[in-house]
């Protein structure tokens, strides 16, 4: 059996917010407890609404943020600060907005070669150029694009550039933070196909962060559903989509509009909104919005049983 590319156990990230000269800062627990592992060539998707901590999780795995607790290992190496420089070549990220993530004053060639300049200082300029052109061909850009600036490209092509840049160091894991949600539908499918192609050819592992369940259903192998900083359900894609166990997953699936005008609409209406992560309810965090909540839910917090194949953090799971 091959070893996982990344393993995270009880990953936690707190932020201190507020607090003035005399006031005590409050602790915001963006990610409370997340454990997962990703195999080479597989895609793990993290879904959830805004504020559930999925982007913080992506940033921790990319070593942009340091976890406050728990452990993270990438390629078998503990992701502590002394290893960061080394591990950064193994993990790369593609951001959501291709309009904001490319430097408008650099040519595409310079954008692609920058990671090599920093991380492969011994590489000659000629080799770098060669590598950049090779990568452009791989993601479907033409070689004359080498000398152009980002503003000359459409959103889809910019996202191709962002993917190419992330692949320059030949990473093992690519973190995709909402890679297609800023793109139009007809462009979205081009980028999704490109990502699938690259995964097959290079054996990449993907951590796919998204709120679009229909996209996740198409690309993922395994899915984690997060709510207020915690994983509430984890499972293989088909198991999770066909038979969701946590009420929140069920509500999320039923709320996703389906492109079928005749489809039955048994939409579960959730009451209220996501509570502030500064005031997470005690007990089950989903209890105030849950239609199945009982006294036990409000008093105790259900744990995600990591040993199960399809665990759900719920006292009264479905199915």
């Amino acid at each position: 059996m091959t070893a996982p590319v990344v393993t995270a156990t009880h990953l936690r990230r707190d932020y201190e917010v507020g607090g003035g000269v005399f006031g005590k800062p409050q602790t915001l627990r963006a990610v409370a407890d997340a454990s997962f592992s990703v195999m080479p060539g597989k895609t793990l998707a993290v879904v959830g609404e805004s504020g559930c901590g999925k982007s913080t999780l992506a940033r921790m795995v990319t070593l942009i943020e340091e976890p406050t607790g728990g452990s993270l290992s990438i390629g078998g190496l503990e992701a502590s600060r002394e290893h960061w420089a080394q591990l950064r070549t193994d993990v790369q990220i593609v951001f959501q907005d291709p309009y904001g993530s490319l430097n408008a004053r650099h040519r595409i060639g310079a954008i692609l070669e920058e990671p090599l300049k920093i991380n492969r200082p011994k590489m000659s300029a000629k080799e770098r150029t060669e590598k950049a052109r090779e990568m452009m061909a791989l993601v479907g850009l033409r070689s004359e694009h080498y000398d152009r600036y980002p503003h000359m490209f459409s959103g889809g092509q910019r996202q191709r550039i962002a993917v190419a840049r992330a692949l320059m160091l030949e990473p093992k894991l690519l973190v995709l933070d909402e890679p297609v949600s800023a793109l139009d539908l007809s462009i979205q499918s081009q980028i999704l196909n490109l990502l699938l192609d690259l995964q097959e050819r290079l054996g990449l592992a993907y951590l796919f962060v998204s709120h679009d369940l229909s996209v996740v259903r198409h690309v993922a192998d395994e899915v984690i559903v997060m709510y207020l900083g915690r994983a509430v359900e984890r499972g293989a894609k088909d198991a999770l989509f066909d038979a969701p166990r946590h009420p929140y997953t069920k509500a999320l699936l039923s709320a996703t509009p389906k492109a079928d005008p005749r489809g039955a609409r048994d939409r579960i209406k959730l009451k209220g909104e996501l509570p502030s992560p500064l005031a997470v309810p005690s007990g089950c965090p989903f209890a105030p919005r849950c239609w199945k909540a009982q006294d036990k839910c409000r008093a105790e917090r259900p744990e995600l049983n990591e040993a199960e194949a399809h665990p759900a953090a719920c006292f009264f799971p479905e199915n």
Binding site: S50, H211, A251, L252, A255, T256, P257, K269, E273
Partner: peptide, 10 residues
């Protein structure tokens, strides 16, 4: 978000 989207559309 999708759950809020569902509420607004309804």
């Amino acid at each position: 978000d999708v759950t809020i989207q569902a509420q607004i559309l309804d």
